[in-house]
Structure formats: C-alpha cells, structure tokens
C-alpha cells in the first residue's frame, strides 16, 4: 500500500506546486470552486485535527471576502452606501473569489506541510550543496536534541533546588539560567562534534550520501500528468476572459476552457483517487488471503 504522500518527494512537491500555482494565479471562479472542493477533500485525507482548522478557514474566508468591497469602490451595481462610499456587487464578488482562492491555496499548503517531513525536505533542499545539506541535517537534529536537553537541565536544576516557578520573577530567572546552560552545552558540544568530524577526515574527500527515495515509474507519471495539466491550464485559462469592472463579463464556457477545467479537476482529485484505489486494493488483498 503506497499512499500519495509516500511517493518520491520530488513528485509530491511538483504536484503541490502545480495545484497551488494554478489556484493562485487564476481568478476563474470555476477553477477556484474545483480547487476549493478538491483541496478540502485532499486535506481531509490526512487531517486529524477535527473541525478547528475548517472553522479557522471559514473565518478567514469571511474576513478576506469583506476586505475588497470595503477598500475597492469600482463597479456599477451599488448595493448600499457605507460612510458615503458605495459598496458594489462587483467588488464583493471579486472579494469572494479572491478569498476562495486564498482559502483553497491554504488548504493545499497545509496538506503539503503535512507531507513534507524533515527527511523529505532534506532530500529536496540538500541537493543545493553538500555543505548546506550537512548544516540543514545537523540543525534539524539539534532541534530535538536541544529540547531533550532542556528538560534534562530543568529537572536537574529542580532536583538541586535552584529552579522554582512559584512566582513570575523566579520563573523567568530559572528559565534564563536553564537557557544559559543549554546554550553553553550546545556550543561546547558542537565543537566536539566538529573535532570528531575533522578527525574522521571530513572535507578530505568526496561526500557520499544515503538515498532514501528512488524515482519510480509512478513518480515520473505524476510529474508528467502535472506538466500536461499545467500546459492545458495555461492555454485553457487564457481562453476564458473575465472582466470584473465596471460590470462583470465572463466568458467561462469556451470549448478550450472546458478542457482546462476537466484537466484541472482530474489533477486536483488525483491524491484522493490514488489513496482510495490503494485502500480498496488493500482490503481486497486482505479479504482474499
């Protein structure tokens, strides 16, 4: 069983870059509608946060949708006046579409953040330079190490009777001392790390690296689908012309743009299809044995 997020990080990154870019660089309401639905479905595959993130998105949507009509007074159809300034239907609709775009992009990016764990990030960014990848991997490792050490120092200080968080001043003082010890320890320990690196011959030869991911056919297939869909998108979206001000004029259903919508729809729903297919196969295989 291989879920979409377990594909090669390059393929996953290209996929999310594609869907987010298409979502962010269009104001086509149909594309944004598809994107919004698909991104929520896709996010629901991985999220275990319950209702909270969706509630946040809803509030964000309302605020963002309200900003544009309050700032922008273009448009012919005046709904009402606020402080002698016209609030127009065109600006309100534009604001709603822009807010939908932002919320959809945020859903995509949240799923992307869930997918990009530190090992995948290292695989992607470490390619820039071997030195950089070394610093990056050390930094990622130190984050957890320093947290563990913080707790160690804190408990030993407490055992020594030097740490007290009864009142605010003592708590701040205690934390400052723990922090001071932590930094000294980390820096001294870092020097030892550097010494051992030098002693074992760091920098004398070529560095080899362990590769966790291989590029398989399915990864290439994903990248190809993304490239194809992005091309269709660029052509299809240019065909659909939208004028927002002073009156909304949309030509949304040109034949080329319908192909564009279909292409984007398939692309956007791809992870859901892959994961559902794998889940069905898994159940089938289990029940067959």
């Amino acid at each position: 069983m291989r879920e979409f997020h377990e594909y090669n990080p390059i393929a996953v990154a290209v996929y999310y870059l594609c869907v987010t870019a298409v979502t962010m660089f269009t104001m086509n309401p149909i594309i944004i509608g598809i994107s919004l639905v698909a991104s929520i479905l896709n996010y629901a595959l991985y999220a275990k946060g319950g209702v909270k993130p969706h509630l946040f998105s809803l509030i964000l949507f309302v605020i963002l949708a309200a900003v544009n009509p309050l700032v922008n007074h273009n448009g012919m159809t005046v709904l009402f006046y606020l402080n002698d300034r016209p609030i127009t239907a065109e600006a309100a609709i534009y604001g709603a579409v822009a807010a939908g775009m932002t919320v959809a992009a945020l859903y995509w990016l949240r799923a992307f953040s869930k997918a990009m764990t530190s090992d995948k990030l290292l695989y992607l960014f470490g390619r820039l330079s071997p030195k950089l990848s070394l610093i990056l991997s050390m930094a990622i490792r130190y984050v957890e190490l320093l947290r563990v050490r913080w707790r160690k120092i804190q408990s030993s200080q407490r055992a020594l009777g030097l740490y007290d968080d009864g009142n605010l001043i003592d708590a701040v003082r205690g934390r400052a001392r723990v922090l001071s010890i932590l930094i000294t320890w980390a820096l001294e320990n870092g020097i030892i790390t550097a010494e051992t690196m030098d002693a074992r011959g760091y920098g004398t030869g070529r560095r080899t690296s362990f590769k966790l991911y291989h590029i398989r056919m399915r990864d290439i297939a994903i990248i190809a689908v993304c490239a194809a869909a992005a091309t269709i998108e660029i052509v299809g979206l240019n065909a659909a012309a939208i004028e927002w001000y002073p009156i909304i004029e949309m030509k949304l259903f040109e034949p080329v743009s319908i192909i564009g919508y279909t292409g984007f729809g398939i692309l956007a729903i791809l992870p859901v299809i892959i994961n559902t297919k794998e889940a069905i196969r898994w159940r089938y295989l289990r029940s067959a044995s």
Partner: peptide, 11 residues
Amino acid sequence: RRMVMVAVMTA
C-alpha cells in the same frame, strides 16, 4: 567548526 556553530544557532 563554524558549520556546527551555525547549525546550533539555527536550532
């Protein structure tokens, strides 16, 4: 040494 220092400061 400087690389490790940078990693520590980053963390």
